[in-house]
Design a protein around this nucleic acid. Structure first.
Length: 287
DNA sequence: CCGTTAACCTGAGAGC
DNA sequence: TGCTCTCAGGTTAACG
């Protein structure tokens, strides 16, 4: 599921509910996620306040009062849900990947906070949670990640230097978390369509103007998506709660054979395969 | 060190 | 209907 905008929206929503709230306990229904859920996680975190909730790359990081950090990664299909005790209603506004029923069998972890709880649901179980002790280890855990697209480290000099030393197509660079953290398969296609760059173009041949375009549209696309709640695929309507709507603004992704939306461009969107992942591009304006 | 491939999972949708 | 096949927003261990 989730690339930077989706994780950011989930984080903002989660933060509203749990910041400075005391976690009572954690019930693990299924510890077989991408990595096994830590054994003693409930003992470690029970009766502690969540003092910070932030996003690092595609991870959600919750700092607890004892300097333990809980890391949540949603993988492809992970979602968080709010359950209020009284009416037991599933509120979907922490969720992006929606099946029509949201099978309970994929509710793997329950975080109980007094009069509500947060559930981690993940059909494919590519997501995981991890516990990290202290700021130093947190830093260590994330040290291989490239800069966040909204930080000033993501600038012309950095990009130019990185592209120059790699021999790789630009699409694969964009989704490489070591280069830049947060972009995945959807937004890579979107950014390159806005920037009018062929996803297969070797990084070393990207011009200075194109670098400026990439930086500009990366921020623009991600910001816009966050603003309208991210991208939701497999929507459903029966349960209250917000879903994202960036999928309505897709220009390339999932638009095979449709017209390119760039101004005055008569092109058509092609679906091509790059490293076994679908990539969408205009056959005319993306050079 | 590098880059590429396979693997980890379930479910939706297409085609027959 | 129901079967089989392909594909899906991510990461990383294993390999050459």
């Amino acid at each position: 599921m989730p690339e930077l905008p989706e994780v950011e929206v989930v984080k903002q929503s989660l933060k509203k509910y749990i910041l400075n709230k005391k976690l009572l306990r954690i019930i693990v229904k299924n510890k077989k996620l991408r990595f096994p859920v830590p054994q003693n996680i409930s003992q470690r975190l029970s009766y502690l306040r969540a003092v910070k909730v932030k996003r690092v790359s595609k991870y959600i990081v919750i700092k607890f009062a004892n300097h333990f950090f809980l890391i949540i990664h949603l993988g492809m299909t992970g979602t968080l849900h709010l359950i209020r005790k009284k009416n037991k209603l599933m509120n979907s506004n922490l969720s992006f990947y929606q099946s029509k029923t949201l099978p309970k069998k994929h509710n793997h972890i329950f975080f109980y906070f007094g009069n509500f709880s947060i559930v981690f649901n993940d059909p494919r179980r590519f997501g995981f949670i991890k516990l990290i002790n202290g700021e130093k280890n947190l830093y260590k855990y994330f040290r291989k990640l490239g800069p966040d697209p909204f930080k000033k480290e993501f600038n012309f000099k950095y990009v130019k230097n990185y592209l120059f030393k790699k021999v790789k197509n630009i699409k694969n660079i964009l989704i490489d978390q070591k280069f830049l953290s947060g972009i995945g398969n959807i937004y890579a296609s979107e950014i390159l369509n806005y920037s009018k760059i062929n996803p297969l173009k070797p990084s070393g041949k990207i011009t200075n103007d194109e670098i400026i375009q990439i930086i500009f549209f990366t921020k623009k696309v991600l910001k816009r998506s966050i603003k309208i709640g991210g991208t939701t695929i497999n929507n459903f309507h029966s349960i209250k709660g917000k879903t994202g709507s960036y999928q309505k603004e897709f220009r390339a992704y999932d638009r095979e054979k449709k017209r390119c939306k760039n101004k005055f461009c008569p092109g058509t969107i092609l679906k091509i395969n790059i490293s076994n992942r679908s990539t969408y591009m205009c056959n005319i304006c993306q050079k």
